[in-house]
């Protein structure tokens, strides 16, 4: 951790917050506080400079226009690149995931991404809307992904990243893989409050940020019930 408190930055909530993206910020802050960690939360709007010294940066979903604008401003600002160079954690969701790559499509044109992850995104033949599930890369040691996706993009991974998950329901990147990660950067098409259904993923980000190998367990009764219910719903929908 950079200072005595865990600093979490939500990048551009004025642009990149469409589907309850605030949830990821609230969940990380609460899970850290429940472990007795002091937390400092910063919401940085797109007309403000991005501090380069925070521990975790969150990028949410957004419509095409705000996504393109967000990428431009982040490239001009440079703060996120400096933070990544210093080992900060980045978690990108949906549009925020796409703009971590080299390029993405918004409003019919190819836009330059932040080039923090080796991936590029374009438009798919159909919009991917619905439950998204899959086994997460075993090296990350977290249980299967459970989420909801709503995007028109398809994402192609380069050799510099690993897929976050193998898709068992939904589309994700391309119907086969979902999301991507490298070092302490992680992106997913599981949109909005993705961590609500994936508390283990939230703890993974906290472990990356703090360097802790293990965190004291929390009572995740309700999240577990939610995951079980969603798994059953996905299975029921898959039955002929």
């Amino acid at each position: 951790m950079s200072t005595e408190s865990l600093r979490i930055v939500w990048i551009y909530p004025d642009l990149l917050s469409t589907y309850g993206d605030r949830g990821n910020l609230l969940i990380l802050a609460r899970r850290a506080q429940q472990r007795g960690m002091p937390v400092e939360v910063l919401e940085v709007r797109s007309d403000q400079r991005l501090p380069a010294t925070a521990d975790i940066y969150l990028l949410g979903g957004g419509e095409d226009g705000p996504q393109a604008l967000g990428a431009q401003r982040l490239l001009a600002d440079g703060g996120l690149h400096r933070a990544v160079a210093q080992g900060s954690v980045v978690f990108g969701v949906c549009a925020g995931y796409q703009l971590l790559g080299t390029s993405f499509f918004a409003k019919g044109t190819r836009c330059a991404g932040l080039e923090l992850l080796d991936l590029s995104s374009d438009r798919g033949p159909t919009r991917a809307v619905g439950e998204l599930a899959g086994e997460i890369d075993p090296r990350l040691g977290v249980p299967p992904l459970s989420g909801f996706e709503n995007h028109g993009g398809r994402t192609h991974l380069g050799p510099g990243v690993s897929p976050l998950a193998r898709v068992s329901a939904g589309i994700g990147n391309d119907g086969v893989t979902e999301g991507a990660w490298r070092g302490k950067l992680l992106g997913t098409y599981s949109h909005g409050p993705a961590l609500a259904r994936n508390p283990a993923l939230a703890d993974l980000l906290l472990r990356w940020a703090t360097g802790a190998h293990q965190l004291p367990p929390l009572d995740d009764t309700w999240a577990e019930r939610l995951r079980t219910e969603r798994r059953a719903a996905v299975a029921a929908a898959a039955r002929p």
């Binding site: 589907y19 605030r22 949830g23 619905g130 909005g192």
Partner: peptide, 8 residues
């Protein structure tokens, strides 16, 4: 079908 808005 999406409950994400609960966090808004």
């Amino acid at each position: 079908l999406d409950t994400s808005w609960l966090f808004d």
